[in-house]
Design a protein around this nucleic acid. Structure first.
Lengths: 244, 244
DNA sequence: TTTTGATAAATCATCGATTATTTGTCAAGC
DNA sequence: GCTTGACAAATAATCGATGATTTATCAAAA
């Protein structure tokens, strides 16, 4: 299926602009599935709480059972999928209490990671933060253009991860990444527009400015508020849709 | 292989004292493997950093490939196993920096979870804490008897988990459980005796007493010290064995 | 001697088919 | 009418075999 390095046969896939070089990562079907399934869950294509029928999933993703099961097993780490013996896999459900926990943990984990980053982060990290902020501010978010929403989600996620990427604590970073994933699912499912009384751009800028200035208390307070506001916002939207 | 409910054929396994009733959980080979592999890694039977050869593992555990791969995929969540495309699975390596991160995160996560537990925990939780303390104090730990060490590890782990079990934050609890697993691997691998200058029993009692008295600062300070001392201890033992 | 490239061996990834379990259905008994 | 139990359909779990990739080996060339 995959043409090896040096092959003259062009691949028929959508990606692969450089057919003579092996792709970086994501070589196996199982690994590709992890990405595709994660995206499908976060974006809401796979409904929260719904059972994942292996036969149907197998068909709709055009894969065999083994890589599908392996991908789902790996997704348990992300908290996006749950499993029970002989009952199979299901998309993790959403709930008010789950959202509240995610918000709380993001406040705790991310402020801790940000403080650590400011303590030990180097100049390159500072630069990455400013670059991520700039990209975020230059990315348009228009509810009438769905593709801009997706793009904005990506750079927004990247901004928050960059903020804490200087902390030199890989386990902590992976936890934060997980929480951010779970949080993004709520936003992408329930929140297409931002609340009117917020200027999110300013919030991001304040966090970033405080961060590179290494003003720990200021930056962490701003970040905590930012996360908290998003949580409050989302909670309201969940309540409107009658989700307990 | 498995005799169904009501069957008159007795199982040949070591467990299953009540053959007429389905086991609670752990029904499938994959799930049993998760437990067995986790125990094998934490106990040090599977060497840290070593590659897991699927063919050999298949034979030594007497299972087929599919459940083995699925079990390993699930173990990634626990941070005990790492994976790379086309290179397979390996036991997560140990290092000084990894131990230090685990210690830091345990300090942060567990004190936060303990505070939350004291804030919202109910009377039943309090009772569970006192029971876990009592069991721990009554469990002997004799380096000359390996089976007592294993037993002690189990009740010790149970004590720490019970402490924070009142917090009503399932995601936080699972993170703490993961960190505790990783920490226990270091202790079981590198630390068979407790340091001479510590009275660990007193430390546990102080934490538990402060907890049920809902003295947040006292209990959390004692817990943080307790975790920190264990970390310092372990770090020394790692250094002695020349592990960077 | 070191490097390179081809080949062989080991190992991982995937598939299709088989077996085991759960869930849905419905009739018999209470 | 409600519960119980047997049967059938749907679904999950496992297996053995096949295909793909990586790693090891070693001879030829620089």
């Amino acid at each position: 299926m995959r043409s090896g390095p040096g092959s003259l046969i062009l691949e028929s896939g959508t990606e692969a602009a450089t057919p003579s070089f092996p792709d970086d990562g994501k070589n196996t079907i199982a690994s590709q599935l992890v990405s595709r399934l994660r995206e499908a869950i976060i974006s809401g294509q796979l409904e929260a709480g719904s059972k994942i029928n292996l036969d149907r999933a197998k068909q709709s993703f055009n894969v065999s059972l083994s890589p599908l099961r392996e991908a789902l097993a790996r997704l348990i780490s992300d908290g996006l999928v749950e499993f029970e013996d002989n009952r199979g896999y299901r998309v993790s459900p959403v709930s008010l209490s789950n959202l509240e926990e995610i918000t709380s943990l993001r406040e705790e984990f991310e402020t801790y990671a940000l403080r650590e980053s400011m303590r030990v982060g180097d100049v390159e990290w500072e630069g990455n933060v400013m670059r991520a902020l700039h990209r975020l501010n230059r990315t348009e978010r228009d509810a009438s253009k769905p593709e801009t929403l997706e793009q904005w989600e990506a750079v927004h996620r990247e901004f928050h991860l960059t903020l804490i990427s200087g902390c030199r604590k890989p386990l902590l970073l992976s936890f934060c990444k997980t929480m951010l994933n779970l949080n993004d699912r709520y936003r992408r499912t329930f929140l297409t527009r931002t609340s009117g009384d917020r200027n999110v751009s300013v919030e991001h800028s304040e966090i970033a400015q405080g961060t590179v200035a290494r003003d720990m208390d200021y930056a962490c307070d701003r970040l905590r508020e930012h996360i908290h506001r998003t949580g409050t916002n989302l909670r309201r939207h969940l309540a409107e849709k009658g989700i307990a």
